[in-house]
Design a protein around this nucleic acid. Structure first.
Lengths: 245, 245
DNA sequence: TTTATATGATAGTTTTACTATTATATAAAA
DNA sequence: TTTTATATAATAGTAAAACTATCATATAAA
């Protein structure tokens, strides 16, 4: 039993350091003041900000409440992020990077681009499920946050300035990868980037609509089961790119 | 000359009262404390808030700045709207109502549902152009505001509560009308509401992308000329609903 | 052991988001 | 015409949000 406990602890530590090396998410350094992945306080900021924003909404979320929630201080959080807007960009970027990673590993041995696009769509819709990236990021909660608040990261007056600094590069790379798959399926399709970004945005939008404004969509969701959204996006893609399913 | 002046004034008054009767936009009364259409101060709030939000962005916009801009006081504005969030809902609702109105009058004598959908798409894309609704609402600026800030009206923690109060009814009615056209074109199409809302959101999104994050789209826009967006949306619709263009 | 660095504790400033009060102008009712 | 109701302006104030600054202490690196 003592040995068992010891082993468990060891495997946890191993798992953790493996994760940290293997898929440490690398994000634009301009987003943060100090890399939150490099300290337990930083990881706590990420962890609790996901929970708190999801709970109270981005508008009512602030660093004071976050500090209380994690038993730290406002000033300490300000040493990691200039303001809550940049923290949101960090979280959203994390999500984009995570979805990219999911798509990359799940399409590794896949040749058929139609099958690849199915995996892309499945990753958009259920990036929450399967393997978690790290113990401090709850992917399911993060996905919910993206669905409700994600577009606020780039719908601001600072978008051009921040885009110039490369803050949205991970999103553009993700869309670029998906557009590549679309072109593989149909090289004559005129709107690969628009379709790629639309599939991503539509996925989040219609999950949100199903939950809050159901008359704006046809699909239904129940308890984080998004199979109808997935079916719809696959249907749209097949129709637009001209293949049967 | 005296007569001329008098006549001009008269025609202005006539025009104004005609407008007020003919297309006074009726919006859910819960959105405002006092109907801004009923006083010149109220109309000034609408007029200047559109200009100011478009100029500084919704996050940095506040009632103090708005009051300065229109030579009034913060307290006076608060008698019309509880807070800036409800003012945004008002402006967004106005836009939805205006687009609905445009679609209604422009499809009045049209029989062919495919032609109707083209008019719908044209209204989504260029609701800014053609006839203005009233002299105090700059439709072109309002459209820009919707493109940049529109979805913030319903991406909040209050969405369920406010939806219960009917604040988003005009949006749902608009989408319902468009879904009706879609069903006319193809009665077997499984996602009429999703396609309708997606056409609307996609229109705004890709205009925004073209302006600020061009690598997320394939289309280009120049100086409020959105013909490429229109072409794309028509292409998407035709493909999805299975007809030639 | 020294020194650098991170965090906590505390306090403070400026701006935002309101609320309250009174005065005055204007419109409606008597 | 006078009274009365209502709208707006002017002013002042409060509470919270969004930071910034300082110093003490704990911990890690040199």
């Amino acid at each position: 039993m003592m040995l068992g406990h010891h082993f468990k602890l060891f495997s946890f530590v191993f798992l953790y350091s493996y994760m940290a090396i293997a898929i440490k998410i690398s994000l634009n350094e301009g987003i943060y003041l100090r890399d939150p992945q490099d300290s337990s306080l930083g990881r706590n900021i990420i962890k609790h900000s996901i929970l708190l924003i999801e709970d109270v909404g981005f508008e009512t979320f602030n660093f004071k409440k976050l500090a209380q929630e994690m038993n730290s201080t406002e000033a300490s959080i300000y040493r990691y992020f200039e303001n809550k807007h940049l923290l949101l960009i960090y979280l959203v970027s994390w999500y984009w990077e995570w979805v990219s990673y999911l798509i990359r590993i799940n399409t590794l041995n896949i040749e058929d681009p139609k099958k690849k696009l199915e995996i892309v769509i499945n990753s958009f819709v259920s990036a929450s499920l399967d393997n978690p990236s790290t113990e401090f990021v709850d992917e399911s909660k993060l996905h919910n946050l993206i669905i409700a608040e994600g577009t606020k990261a780039y719908h601001t007056k600072e978008v051009d300035d921040e885009n110039g600094k490369g803050f949205f590069k991970t999103y553009k790379q993700l869309i670029n990868m998906v557009a590549g798959v679309i072109v593989e399926i149909n090289p004559t399709f005129k709107y690969p980037y628009a379709l790629a970004s639309n599939l991503f945005e539509m996925s989040n939008n219609h999950i949100y609509f199903a939950k809050h404004l159901p008359r704006l969509t046809d699909i239904q969701v129940s308890e984080n089961k998004y199979s109808e959204v997935e079916k719809m996006l696959n249907y749209f893609s097949a129709k637009l790119l001209g293949y049967e399913r």
